[in-house]
Simulated assay, not measured.
Amino acid sequence: MAKKEKEIEEYLAHLYVHVNEVEHFALFSGLSVHQFIRYFSDLSALLLLKHRYEDTSFNIHTQLEFVVQNQYTRFLKDYSERPTELCILDFSDERKLNMLSPQEQAELLYIAHKKEAFRLPFYHHLQNRFVYLTDEGEQITKIYFRDIDDLYKLIANVFNQQISEKTKSTAFWRKKNNVVLPELHSEKVEAYADYYEDGVLMSLFKLDKTNYGIEIRNLPENIFPDEVLGDLKHHLNKPADLFIQI
């Protein structure tokens, strides 16, 4: 079915994704820490390697600060008011922090400072699922994933959040609000995994009253991730390489 060219205002959300499966990380633009923590909201605690949040707990062994699950909402509110560079990873129990060796603690400090790891940053004692790094404007976010399936689930969850929020914003004008929302499943995101290795722009739009779609555009290898969303009009002039119907 032929589709007319869309205006930029017709798109609901954009997400740049560049995946390095070998080193278990992905680069994003258009992903917020709120969206990320909303997906990982079931985790017990977050270790704060780089931050400016003040209402934290302190681990004496590592000399590092952390927040627990019931502090996430306050932590995100503070981050919204005072955005900063951020480096966090998850852990289950403070006792596990006390088992980290000097070498492992040094590695954590290195990651926070350099935004890169010299080995996969997943620790036996912590059993962390991720390491999350972003700049002050959230223009580039780098996430290491222990399980690459979390990457695909996160992408699906981000778009499902957008669809849900769009539906809520229009629900006031409906007489009935019993519409079943379409849902993007992670398996459908994973089906296009080969494309993410070169960097893609994923753009969400509404197809009709009940369906949504995502256009996927391959981007040049030499592109700067932090400039992708600023050059949307230029990228959207190119026909989509792939299409996912939700």
Rank of each mutant, 00 (worst) to 15 (best):
M1S: 14
A2N: 15
K3Y: 13
K3W: 10
E9G: 04
E9H: 13
E10I: 13
Y11R: 01
A13I: 05
V17C: 02
H18C: 15
H18G: 15
H18P: 07
V19N: 01
H24V: 10
F25P: 06
A26N: 09
L27I: 04
S29D: 05
S29F: 00
S32R: 07
H34F: 07
F36A: 01
R38S: 05
S41K: 08
S41R: 08
S41W: 03
L43E: 01
S44E: 07
A45M: 07
L46H: 06
L47H: 02
H51I: 01
H51N: 09
E54G: 01
T56Y: 03
N59G: 13
N59Q: 12
I60D: 15
H61C: 12
E65P: 00
V67L: 11
L76H: 03
L76N: 00
S80M: 11
S80A: 09
P83H: 08
E85W: 11
L86R: 08
L86K: 07
I88A: 06
D90W: 08
D93F: 13
E94A: 15
K96S: 12
N98Y: 06
N98G: 12
M99A: 15
P102F: 03
P102W: 00
E104R: 01
Q105F: 05
E107T: 05
E107P: 12
E107R: 09
L109H: 13
L109T: 11
L109N: 13
I111E: 02
E116Q: 13
A117V: 03
L120V: 06
P121A: 07
F122H: 05
F122L: 01
F122A: 00
H124E: 15
H124K: 10
H124N: 11
L126F: 07
F130I: 04
V131H: 02
V131A: 01
V131C: 07
D135P: 10
E136V: 11
E138Y: 04
I140P: 11
K142C: 08
Y144N: 07
I148A: 00
I148E: 04
D150N: 02
L151F: 03
L151Y: 03
Y152D: 04
K153H: 01
K153C: 03
L154R: 04
A156D: 05
V158K: 05
N160G: 03
N160F: 01
Q162W: 06
Q162I: 02
S164M: 10
E165T: 07
T167Q: 14
K168L: 14
S169Q: 11
T170H: 10
A171Q: 12
W173S: 12
R174M: 08
K175F: 10
N177I: 12
N177W: 12
L181A: 14
L184V: 08
S186F: 02
E187V: 12
E187H: 09
E187N: 10
D194Q: 15
D194H: 15
D198T: 10
G199P: 10
M202W: 02
D208P: 01
Y212D: 03
G213D: 04
I214L: 00
P220K: 11
P220R: 09
E221L: 15
N222T: 13
N222R: 09
D226Q: 14
D226A: 12
E227C: 11
E227S: 11
G230D: 15
L236A: 07
N237Y: 03
P239R: 09
F243M: 13
I244K: 03
I246N: 09
